[in-house]
């Protein structure tokens, strides 16, 4: 069995006395694109900073390419990091920003020029080489930051919320750009995000984190369709999650009997899995929002609030109207976890 490319072993990270990440274990292979996903404060950025060497772990080890790098300082670790704010050097031109690391390495001038130009060309910024970062657009600044990391040919490229500062159109462009760079270079990438759709769209594997602990690791498919915990289900869009015991579902407001058999644990439905207009349950429409293709309802039911979204083609209901709905077995996702 080949050893993993990156291995985090019992990694404990802390700020002063406050432990942010206790005993984290994780590994990935060369060339994988990993997403660290989770709400703010879950320890994902902290974990990324410790891989980069910007934060010394309290205990545990970090291995990269089979080598223990736990005590290797950040400037010798050969890891690239694209900061959320890009962290470009405002006093240097685009060219000098990209050449910065190569100059520190003291490469021959000709090689620096060649590599820098190639790096700028790869991200389509060669024509802006003489501009200062402040004279570039947000998207150009980000591609410059990408080029600056990539010319160093790092062992791993870390990205902190790489798409969060961009508008919707640029976000799609950058996503394609990152996938292309990854495909062409085969570099191992780990990116941090709080946006599940980003993680699902980009990553080979997703590491879902909560309170410094790994909640679930899996492919986008696995996480989306088979979340193993209430938290994971909630984070990945199962907005209706209820405890089930003896075929009775227990909500915040009350209980309803289930019309199919289920083990005790939790059942979850996406808003799109809730059927409206027929079924054994009754509810009142609390609010309704038109979202183009779909109509999003908030329903007031016996067990509490139900989120439902149905095709806009179907019959619409007004606020205050009563309706029947169903939580079908076919759409239900069972989670073993008890309360």
């Amino acid at each position: 069995m080949s050893s993993p490319y990156i291995l985090l072993k019992d990694l404990t990270l802390a700020y002063g006395d406050m432990v942010a990440v206790p005993k984290l274990n994780f590994s990935c292979d060369k060339g994988e694109l990993i997403a660290l996903l989770g709400p703010s404060g879950c320890g994902k950025t902290t974990t990324m900073r410790s891989i980069a060497g910007l934060l010394a772990p309290q205990s545990g080890q970090i291995y990269i390419d089979g080598k223990d790098v736990t005590n290797v300082p950040a400037n010798k670790r050969e890891i690239g990091l694209m900061f959320q704010s890009y962290a470009l050097f405002p006093h240097l031109s685009g060219f000098e920003n990209v050449a910065f690391g190569l100059r520190i390495k003291k490469l021959p001038e000709a090689e620096i020029v060649e590599k820098t130009n190639k790096g700028l060309d790869t991200v389509g910024l060669l024509h802006l080489a003489n501009r200062k970062p402040s004279e570039m657009s947000g998207g150009q600044q980000q591609r410059l930051a990408l080029a600056r990391s990539m010319v160093m040919e790092p062992k791993v490229l870390l990205l902190d919320e790489p798409l969060s500062n961009l508008d919707a159109r640029l976000r799609l462009e950058m996503r394609a750009e990152l996938q292309r760079v990854q495909r062409e270079t085969g570099i191992t990438m780990i990116f941090v995000t709080h946006d599940q759709s980003e993680a699902l769209a980009l990553a080979d594997r997703i590491v879902l984190m909560k309170d410094g602990l790994i909640e679930q690791i899996g492919t986008p498919d696995e996480l989306y369709n088979k979340p193993t915990s209430v938290f994971a289900a909630d984070f990945l869009g199962f907005e209706n999650i209820f405890e089930v015991s003896n075929n009775v579902i227990i909500g915040d407001a009350g209980k309803m009997s289930l019309d199919f058999k289920s083990e005790s644990g939790h059942l979850a439905w996406r808003p799109s899995g809730v059927k409206i207009g027929q079924g054994k349950y009754k509810a009142v429409v609390k609010s309704v929002a038109f979202a183009g293709e779909r109509r999003e309802y908030v329903l007031d039911a016996e067990i509490g609030v139900i989120m439902a979204d149905v095709s806009a083609q179907k019959k619409s209901y007004k606020i205050g109207e009563s309706l029947a709905f169903d939580l079908p077995k076919s759409e239900a996702h069972f989670i073993e976890q008890a309360s």
Binding site: L54, L81, F83, A87, L88, G101, R148, S149
Partner: peptide, 10 residues
């Protein structure tokens, strides 16, 4: 983070 970027670049 500018300084951190510089450190990561060597």
């Amino acid at each position: 983070d500018m300084e951190e970027a510089a450190v990561l670049l060597g």
